[in-house]
Amino acid sequence: MRIDGYTKKYGDLTVFDDFSVEFYDQKINCIMGPSGCGKTTLLNAIAGLDGDKLKINISYIFQEPRLLPWKRIRQNIMIALPDTFTKAEKRERAEKYLTAVGLEKFMNYYPAQLSGGMRQRAAIARAFAVPCDLLLMDEPFNGQDMKTREELIKLFLKLWKEEPKTVIAVTHSFSEAWLLGDRTLVLTKAPAHIAADINCFTPREIRAANIDCGEAKLLRQKIEEAFETPSETPG
């Protein structure tokens, strides 16, 4: 998955100017950067939300669950599945992934009847139930309390380990970049370019327990340095 020469302007503000980046396949690519640097814009461009139709199948976990309020949880998953599945297959698939996120008892509930954390779990189930090559995430664990956030991250990693796919995850939290990322890209302010590109090698299973280890500290330091990078590249 790569982006070549992407340019985007909002009025006078150039958000991206001939921006190129290559994402690692089957890995979790985290994207960080100062607010307003165009992370969501980039994600939406990749998702084809600003016009072009995409050729690859994608899933998207948004900041909010974005479930249809008038459909039960099960139907919310089923409606997102492509029509190449029969109705019975859709139902089976929806139930399988809802069970995987621990919502098997709530499949007949409406979104409003669930807690925020449960709704986001349903959104994660939807993202994995839809067969996709690329999974985009825009600060998906935001707006949850600490405990729910940890649970959601754990749950996400469990599902992803079973079915690895290319993930591009926008986050503003260092700890998420550490817990999730095979690699973290830090963007500068608009017009954005890549200020840092940091790989993490510590096995993901032991990262939660080693939030203060050498590599974690190094990652944090590099991210903080990259945030100081000015937007204009010299020359």
Partner: peptide, 13 residues
Amino acid sequence: RRLTEMGKVYRFS
């Protein structure tokens, strides 16, 4: 709009 975007991502007919 957030719901219509979701529909677009998941290619709603």
